[in-house]
Write a protein that binds this DNA or RNA. Structure first.
Length: 425
DNA sequence: TCTGGGGTCCTAGGACCC
DNA sequence: TCTGGGGTCCTAGGACCC
């Protein structure tokens, strides 16, 4: 059996942990630049039917009228809270697959004499007690069914956030309850096509749709889903995350930018972030890609988007080399006269550090200078982000940096921002 | 005026190898 | 004029996830 544990409206719940005055009140969390709603707690969802990913400016009235508290996203905080949850899960089973920031699969096979309902509630209660975060637990024989069980645990209050599929009757009943579009792995396109074929529920899909059709129209991915829904496990359980195949970052500017040097600065800053991730993973990149674009949504601004990929002479993870290569790429695609909204960088062709080959003319160690980068990372880990940095990354950050007007404090990572508890006289 | 960001997997088709 | 059979690697595009 596999348990799927998932935090309820995770970002909003994280904010509430440190603001108990907001418990029971509507809370939403906004995307970068405070642009869209990306998380809403139960209260916020129920009162006004706030659709996810709705631009904030369109629903500002509703938010204000209903006294909804909103936060800019604080990923540092959410990442830290996520760690706590995962660490607790690891005390329940040696096999934990962290699936996303707020979800994990827990392998229960081989743990004997398990009272599943009790085990499920223990997980739920312990996480709530230790972190303050509410979770739902779904337990079933396959990952897809565990996801489904988790959904039911969350939707139907009678189950008290724990639901178990451990018999054929329960499995079939569960499949009949869930709409095809709500099955994990069925997105908008497939849902539309299946509905045209009169497949409306997970049950219709798993028991009334021929495998041959599924295989042909939805590839092997669809076939796995079909089998998993019928109770046959075929999606692997992986406790060790695979190294990333590409690492990138792209963020909208706080305001529109026209000048190359400002975009250059943001680009260099993002490069230093991703190269740090590369080094932490012990990898080097063979290619660096830079892209820019204007506002897709604007009806007045001229539109432009372009990208450029540079092949590095020798794969590297050195911040300075990557900044200089990215800068060349940016210069190739930048055109004056546009109001740019976003710049992004991607590192790909990722290989382990130890496998980097020299070419006839270059020594990898001379280019990558691992000794310098180690010192560089060491200082930043000890004294805080960007204590030492390439000068190009920070001259006029306020000109392009994201807008985060409503960010909560870094309660768990900054001494100055710790939660204060006490009474005022 | 204001609209997120970071990923994965699969397939088909083209270029290439012996 | 006739022109095989077995592969690999890479990329673009489409679908999906949170």
């Amino acid at each position: 059996m596999i348990a799927m544990v998932d935090c309820n409206s995770f970002y909003a719940s994280c904010e509430q942990v440190f603001r108990p005055d907001l418990l029971g009140k509507p809370v939403v969390v906004l995307s970068n630049n405070d642009g869209c709603v990306i998380a809403a707690n139960k209260e916020a969802k129920s009162l006004a039917h706030i659709p996810m990913f709705e631009p904030v400016f369109k629903i500002k009235d509703i938010l204000e009228k209903n006294n909804v508290t909103f936060f800019s996203s604080n990923y540092t905080l959410y990442g830290e809270m996520s760690q706590r949850v995962m660490n607790i899960l690891k005390t329940f089973s040696p096999m934990v697959e962290v699936y996303s920031i707020d979800e994990a699969f827990v392998e229960l096979t081989g743990i004997n004499h398990l009272d599943l309902p009790k085990y499920g509630s223990n997980i739920k209660e312990q996480i709530l007690r230790y972190t303050g975060l509410p979770v739902g637990v779904g337990i079933a024989p396959t990952k897809v069914l565990a996801k489904l069980a988790n959904r039911i645990a969350k939707k139907e209050e009678v189950h008290d956030h724990v639901y178990i599929i451990d018999s054929e009757e329960k499995r079939k009943a569960a499949l009949k309850k869930v709409k095809i579009g709500d099955v994990w792995g069925i997105g908008r396109q497939h849902a539309r096509r299946l509905q045209e074929k009169k497949v409306f529920t997970a049950f219709d899909f798993a028991h009334n749709t021929p495998l041959a059709w599924v295989r042909k129209e939805m590839t092997v991915v669809g076939e796995r889903l079909w089998r998993e829904l019928r109770g046959e496990s075929c999606i692997e359980f992986t406790t060790i995350p695979k190294p990333k195949k590409g690492i990138g970052t792209a963020k909208s500017f706080g305001k529109r930018l026209e000048d190359l040097d400002m975009i250059e600065e943001a680009c260099a800053y993002y490069i230093s972030e991703v190269s740090e991730v590369m080094r932490a993973q012990g990898s080097c990149a063979s290619y660096v890609q830079v892209f820019v674009h204007t506002n897709y949504h604007s009806k007045i601004d001229k539109r432009y988007s372009e990208s450029c990929t540079v092949t590095l002479p020798v794969p590297t993870n050195n911040t300075f080399v990557l900044i200089s290569e990215a800068r060349k790429a940016l210069h190739r695609i930048y055109k004056p006269g546009f109001r740019y909204k976003k710049v992004g960088v991607n590192l790909s062709g990722i290989i382990p550090q130890e496998y980097v080959q020299a070419n006839l003319f270059e020594q990898p160690s001379k280019i990558s200078n691992p000794v310098l980068m180690k010192v560089f990372d060491g200082i930043n880990n000890k004294y805080g982000k960007a204590t030492v940095a390439s000068a190009i990354t920070g001259r006029r950050k306020q000109e392009w940096e994201l807008i985060k007007k409503h960010r909560s404090p870094y309660y768990t990572t900054q001494w100055q921002e710790l939660l204060k508890v006490g009474s005022r006289s």
